[in-house]
């Protein structure tokens, strides 16, 4: 199966040492594309733009296609300043995660990120005209919706899918991690550092349901489409793995094995199962509620 593997931007807040160590390892992982940057919260600062650019150089030298991802929720003038710097970096491709970024990137090639709402071929066409060469489908889009859309698409843009990780489901101005500790957002004491994989939110009967990641709300379950790869050729060009604190290299290796035929997707998925930090889900791809795990006969 000819599909590329990408590593998404780290959605969590990790220490500087952890980030440096992580990307040192990424250089040797079987991923083709690496997305870098802070997409969730402008208060996070263990890595600043210069640090991201430095890692970008290192990974590009290691042969990776590097893309700089922009913050999804742009609120302040200072957010815009960072956005302009990324969009005008002059060297690396950029993933636009809001329409402000699309405006700044128009006229040169860019990636339309998962937080741009692209649900039909007419919107995709507008992004193509602006310069997008790849788009990341909305997480809630099913295989059928994607097939319907691509049937009418004439631009042949690359399609990328969020294929592994806790799903980014919502953004807010409010920080839910700070709220958990009764702290104001402006004095959050960077408690996200203590939750490198988000804080699991459970129902009152103990069912893991969501995960709080600062201003972002994620699924508690791990979206995992490794067993679904055979339903993707012709629709999907790039599979995105969302970094987690543990086993991300192993996850990439198993996806890679399934793509190059060293293992069947079913075999690889069986090997991946014990590495999942929470229950798996794949409902969205099947047009079902996202939290469901659909087992194909």
């Amino acid at each position: 199966m000819i599909m590329k593997l990408s590593l998404g931007p780290i959605l969590y807040y990790w220490t500087r040492e952890t980030l440096l160590d992580f990307y040192d390892q990424v250089a040797s992982w079987p991923v083709d594309i690496v997305y870098l940057g802070e997409t969730v919260c402008s208060r996070r600062h263990t890595f600043r733009t210069d640090n991201w650019l430095h890692v970008a150089e290192m990974l590009a030298a290691a042969g990776k296609e590097v893309v700089l991802s922009t913050q999804a929720l742009i609120e302040s003038e200072s957010d815009l300043k960072t956005l302009r710097r990324l969009c005008g970096n002059g060297k690396f491709s950029v993933e636009a995660n809001d329409m402000g970024a699309v405006r700044l990137l128009s006229g040169s090639p860019f990636v339309a990120g998962p937080h741009i709402n692209t649900y039909n071929p007419y919107t995709l066409e507008i992004l193509a005209e602006a310069g997008a060469t790849r788009w990341v489908i909305p997480v809630e889009m099913s295989r059928q919706m994607l097939a319907d859309l691509l049937e009418q698409d004439t631009h042949g843009m690359e399609s990328e899918i969020f294929a592994y990780g806790r799903l980014p489901l919502a953004f807010s101005a409010r920080c839910f991690t700070a709220r958990r500790y009764n702290l104001p957002k402006d004095d959050c004491q960077f408690r996200c550092l203590e939750a490198p994989y988000g804080l699991t939110l459970k129902t009152r009967e103990g069912q893991p349901f969501l995960a709080l990641n600062g201003t972002q709300t994620q699924s508690a379950s791990v979206y995992n489409l490794l067993a679904e790869l055979e339903s993707m050729p012709g629709l999907v060009n790039v599979l995105r793995i969302s970094p987690q604190p543990q086993h991300t290299g192993d996850v990439a290796a198993l996806f890679h094995a399934a793509l190059n035929g060293a293992a069947t997707p079913a075999q690889a998925a069986r090997e991946l199962a014990p590495l999942l930090p929470e229950a798996a889900c794949n409902g969205y791809w099947h047009g079902r509620p996202g939290l469901e795990q659909v087992v194909m006969p």
């Binding site: 999804a72 709402n117 489901l169 919502a170 953004f171 807010s172 101005a173 709300t217 509620p289 939290l291």
Partner: peptide, 11 residues
Amino acid sequence: MVEGRCVLSSY
């Protein structure tokens, strides 16, 4: 949540 950027309900 930011309207248009919340899919908790479909999840």
